[in-house]
Design a protein around this nucleic acid. Structure first.
Lengths: 196, 196
DNA sequence: AACGTAGCACTAACGGATAGCTTTTCCTAA
DNA sequence: TTAGGAAAAGCTATCCGTTAGTGCTACGTT
């Protein structure tokens, strides 16, 4: 059994991973995602191609490196909210925070790059669908809610749509102000039919 | 200027395309999508690989060949409805028809294959997003509707979600019965704020 | 000090997709 | 009828993302 690693190996591994991610992002922003090949990234980061793929599952994953906690934050907005806080406002707060995070000045060039590449957009969509599934499970598991499982899945999709649509909108926060009342109404309309 | 083609060329081209599509679908269903390579499809259809790719933009497109009018049907449900018919029921009717079409006995093995392959699922997602965009444009262009453009885009996403969610549900039609009242409520909540 | 293994490198290949160029097939106009 | 033009299909060679197989090296453990 592997017990405790006292550090040097882990640090070296993390450093390699970081160097790859940094190099990749730099090259992608400099010359465009599609114009830079994997072999080039690996060479510039001074690692073998196989090493690169042992740290990142795909070329796209190099770009989406940081947004790992995204899913966790959304589900926690459901599960960790205070006992009688209504669901929708809690979700709205979290989506707003995520949108702000994506549209912040630092992240803007990255998102422009993502929207410019079909491959990256596709990847982003797939990620969002995974998030919608996780969110649906969190909502369905909430004991205080009496909606059906279909309603839970639907709400989750709608919330992810809100995130995606507002990120693309010219005024993201205004878009959220418009979409979330629609979601609220939809959730109200899914009143307790029968138990799941 | 090319004038009128009297037919032989067009027919031969269509025949080639059809032969490729048929061969591909047959091989994919027989042995699995991932187990059959492009070179093999081309060989079995007795065409060159480059010819195959001049008819279909990608391997995935071989599978989604027939669902081209999908988008057209959805937008027509909006634009061609009778003058004062409300929007949501018209969309619901069309989505129901599409879901029935996908879950019909003939199409079932194809959809099982699609859900079994990550590449095909991803492609399907991308196709749905395109459809949502087209639907959003059709809704926004309707002169009788006074909602904002954000509301139109949101409705379009929700409708596509309804299609997608109900296709995956154990009882697709029951799922639609549950989701569309939610959509109706959301659309009602997007009351005329200001003109677009 | 010796062993086990995690991390990384190297080569070689696979499968999807494309660029460049030639050949075939069909349409049309002289 | 035939010559010219162009669309369709073919061939070759290659790029690109990704993976398998195989070692070697450096680290952590005993």
């Amino acid at each position: 059994m592997t017990v405790q690693q006292s550090g040097r190996r882990e640090r070296k591994k993390a450093a390699t991973r970081q160097k790859i991610a940094d190099t990749a992002l730099r090259l992608f922003l400099e010359r465009g995602y599609d114009a830079v090949g994997i072999r080039e990234v690996a060479a510039e980061a001074d690692v073998a191609v196989t090493t690169l793929f042992s740290h990142f599952a795909s070329k796209e994953a190099l770009v989406f490196e940081q947004d790992e906690d995204f899913e966790h934050r959304l589900t926690r907005a459901v599960t960790d909210r205070s006992p009688h806080e209504p669901l929708i406002p809690a979700l709205r707060r979290e989506v707003l925070a995520l949108v702000r995070h994506c549209t912040a000045d630092g992240a803007a060039p990255v998102w422009r790059m993502i929207e410019a590449s079909p491959a990256l957009r596709k990847y982003d969509e797939a990620v969002r669908l995974r998030h919608a599934d996780a969110l649906a499970r969190a909502i369905a598991a909430d004991p205080g809610l009496t909606r059906s499982e279909t309603a839970a899945r639907t709400l989750a999709r709608f919330v992810i749509d809100a995130y995606s649509l507002s990120r693309e909108a010219p005024d993201p926060e205004a878009a959220l102000d418009e979409i979330f009342p629609m979601i609220e109404a939809a959730w109200e309309a899914a009143r307790p039919p029968r138990r799941t």
